[in-house]
Design a protein around this nucleic acid. Structure first.
Lengths: 209, 209, 209, 209
DNA sequence: GATTAAACGAGACGGTACGTCCTGTCTTAAT
DNA sequence: ATTAAGACAGGACGTACCGTCTCGTTTAATC
């Protein structure tokens, strides 16, 4: 996954899996205590009880290391069936907001996105490790709503469907991230309800012929 | 504004307004050529033909400098009357996206937002210099739509109005930023139309009693 | 003297004599507290309650300022008649050593001499303000010894006399300075007696035909 | 010696001996071209093709670096047997003066001595690396003169001997340094002869019972 | 069990930028 | 014209990190 096996050869001493964990743990810990900009490779290495070479053998840049360290937190997001599309959306908005409130993610997400604007490899890694994996939540919620009859079934046009999913994803994730990190205001139940109402109405109308 | 007068006293040589401009110009130029992460205070100073001390006397951190240098670009955003609420929204979405495509803003915005998560003074500066000032676009578009009869008049509840404006702002800005910088896909006319449809329908429904 | 009148004209506000004293006092004080290398023009100005311009108008360089500040201390050296040439020499050795033990002079003398090796103007200033004025002690002691009959009278050859005086001056001052500042050992009565014995015997023999 | 092994451990990459030489060579070169006061750590590092950190890892201060760089020049001083005590003294006086005329030593010696007045570690380093090692010349010349019968043999009292050696050392070195650097006049054959006469007579008398 | 080759810790390395300090000059208004 | 105040260009400081390197030392899989 994030730390690809260097080659199928198996000569010499194998890499330490312990070191991998220690480094990622140390990275998350350092993010909490220092934030993105004061986190250094040397500090992470020391904190993980590992030599700098061991760290650089696995991750060439701080941004890649942080993406991998933080990605796992995004995987914790889930979409339990709350019984209605409205409840599901409000739920995911609130749990996404809660995730963004954690110091590890708060300080990292924007930073790696910023870094990625000039680094296509990093952009790909972010897309793969974080962004794409969150779209599953939209897909899942959508299918469930279709099963409930809250949304019309797929048009059969896969491209069209992908476009809609992307749009909804950008609207939900974008609004939450912007409110939380840019506007710097709390994403609470009140806001989640207003936002969900707006989105539901938009979706309902869009779904009409 | 950005560089507040240090005090009403008038002792000693006054600060050079030329230097202010040269520094902000140099900052924008360096952002274009080097991007956020390779921009250094020393480089900006050299480029501005100014000593580093002169720079640090005004801006203690690179992030504050960049906020001030970039804020003016956001002020260039305008909302010409395109005849309908739909046209106005599509217009602002596209011109905001165009702004985010400029190299000066592309990396900077996310980077300073990232920095602001651990620096409340910076967060305030961003809010004041960038975020709050862009809400005027939402207000303006809304009033115009109300005048056209496309949206119902204000409820008279100022707090309620502010909440709605904030929501719309976060949804529009958030969706555009997310699509453009996080998802890394183009904000083109097609997307703008889909997004606007979604938003308009949401607004229309929300406005119904 | 050390601070030459800028010109015989007397237009505009006259220079403050208070400032002169304050600056020289502050310089000596700073030398005591900080030593030569940590003394700065800005610090002296602040300590003297004077603007930097006021300081630079009088002394262009730190070394010149220090020479003037310290020269006055060397003028305090005196040669009271102790009754014999031996006693006079031992006296001047000990009082010169005592002067070199003061922190103002200890830290300054070698420093300005070092500086003067690449700065002929400074060398001249040191020669004039410090070195030449101390030769009076040698001259005085010599004349007194001649009056006592301890040394033969002048040969009448002025050049010859000057050469001898210079030699004795360099030997006495050099030995004391070297012992005190380079070797870093105390110039006490025991050493002064040994040194004086050596010098007297040398002089006596030299004076014989 | 000058750069003590940091510890007997042998962990990590060992320090580069090449770097040591390059730095000391660069220091001497910079002293020749720039003199003490314009020599900077950064310049030396660049000239040596070495990072500043590499330099600071070995020498914390410019003065210590210069002491080590210059000490080796003092070791070049030698005392070839010139056949008589008089010739030996005249020889060492002239060659010491020639050494002090070299641009590397000219400013450096006084400067580091000045610095050492407020820095006991530096004083110790100077004592060890320069001062103590030059006393060998006095010892050597003295033994040779005793072998020739020009001076009486040692009294057997080691402390007494050390005191005499120190005295002679301070008188010779002090007089030459003072004439050359403080009085700023040439140490030529004429002066050397006068000084040697004075010293020999003093020694002769001192040696008499 | 010995060999082999990569991974490991430690830390030195060349290099870049940092943010501060000092220098000596200049620009204000006040005296 | 001099003063206090303080901004200015410039340059060096000593430190912190970067990413690479060079050591001597494990640690498995292979021979």
């Amino acid at each position: 996954m994030a730390v690809p096996a260097p080659s199928p050869r198996r000569l010499g001493r194998p890499r330490s899996a312990e070191a991998d964990h220690a480094i990622l743990d140390a990275t998350r810990g350092a993010l909490v205590e220092l934030g993105w900009s004061k986190l250094t490779m040397g500090h992470v290495a020391t904190r993980a009880g590992v030599a700098k070479t061991t760290l650089y053998r696995r991750w060439a840049h701080k941004s890649e290391l942080v993406v991998d360290a933080v990605a796992v937190l995004f995987d914790e997001l889930e979409l339990p069936d709350r019984g209605s599309l409205r409840a599901d959306i409000e739920g995911v908005v609130l749990s996404f907001a809660a995730l963004l409130e954690r110091p590890e993610t708060k300080t990292s997400l924007m930073a790696v996105v910023a870094e990625s604007t000039y680094d296509t490899a990093l952009r790909a890694r972010i897309g793969e490790a974080i962004v794409e994996r969150q779209k599953r939540l939209v897909l899942e919620g959508r299918e469930r709503a279709q099963a409930r009859g809250e949304l019309p079934p797929d048009s059969g046009n896969g491209e069209e469907t992908a476009r809609v999913v992307d749009l909804i994803f950008d609207v939900i994730a974008g609004a939450v991230v912007h409110r939380s990190l840019v506007s710097g205001e709390a994403v609470d139940e009140v806001w989640a309800r207003s936002f969900t109402t707006l989105l539901l109405d938009g979706l309902a109308a869009t779904s009409r012929p």
